[in-house]
């Protein structure tokens, strides 16, 4: 049906593309390459994690007990659910059900906020105890060499992830806005699709952070 160009369909086509499928595929490809760069950005932190865990295995085990596994699990469930609602929001817009799509986006946004609130409580607890990165580390209850390294790694990984959650929330609220304005439909929903890809990436990174930080056996 690519040649059956309705006028609404044409309106989204930039001058240098010849077909809207070319345009939307380009956009998705760009997003996937962006995801690739994100994977390698976080990759540096995963490498640092592996290096220091292999250097101090005992300490990592002792230190990880000070993370709250219940809150960690709760946040994992929250993020996975938000990923599901995001995927369903895109499905709704594909089927031209704008209202349902907006509701699902709002749910995703709310779940992201819940994630950050839980994170806030975890962080403030650690600040209170002095379980802080590097030279700010004042806690004394962890055995093993250099326990501050664990918290350096913990705060860098979850902190960078947290920034990505905030960026995702900004993107979701923007997509929600343009959906409410009626600018997205089953004909053209690229912004929502790209935001979805980004949001799933944020979920995916947390899927790795959770066992690596909270569940050291």
């Amino acid at each position: 049906m690519t040649s059956g160009n309705s006028s609404g369909h044409r309106a989204h086509l930039a001058h240098h593309f010849s077909e809207s499928s070319q345009q939307s595929e380009s956009a998705r490809m760009g997003m996937w390459i962006f995801i690739l760069t994100e994977v390698l950005l976080f990759g540096g932190l995963f490498v640092a994690y592996t290096v220091y865990r292999s250097a101090n295995p005992e300490m990592f085990y002792n230190a990880h007990k000070h993370l709250d596994i219940h809150l960690g699990t709760l946040n994992t469930i929250v993020l996975i659910t938000s990923s599901l609602t995001m995927a369903l929001a895109i499905r709704s817009i594909q089927l031209n059900d704008r209202k349902k799509s907006i509701k699902l986006l709002a749910t995703t946004f709310a779940l992201a906020a819940v994630f950050l609130i839980v994170k806030y409580f975890e962080y403030s607890h650690k600040f209170h105890l002095g379980q802080l990165p590097g030279k700010f580390y004042t806690y004394t209850g962890i055995e093993g060499s250099n326990p501050h390294i664990f918290f350096s790694v913990y705060f860098m990984m979850t902190g960078l992830h947290g920034i990505h959650v905030i960026a995702g929330m900004i993107a979701i609220s923007w997509v929600m806005r343009i959906t409410i304005q009626g600018r997205l439909s089953s004909e053209y929903y690229t912004p929502m699709e790209l935001t979805g890809l980004y949001w799933h990436l944020v979920d995916m990174i947390w899927i790795f952070l959770f066992p690596l930080l909270y569940l050291i056996g």
């Binding site: 540096g44 990165p133 590097g134 030279k135 790694v153 705060f155």
Partner: peptide, 27 residues
């Protein structure tokens, strides 16, 4: 390039917040 990004971020954090991951005195 993303790896350069995370490298300089870690360096900045090392200087600003003293996270100690490149500092031999802190392990």
């Amino acid at each position: 390039t993303p790896v350069l990004g995370i490298t300089v971020l870690l360096l900045i954090l090392e200087r600003v917040a003293g996270i100690g991951i490149f500092d031999p005195a802190m392990g």
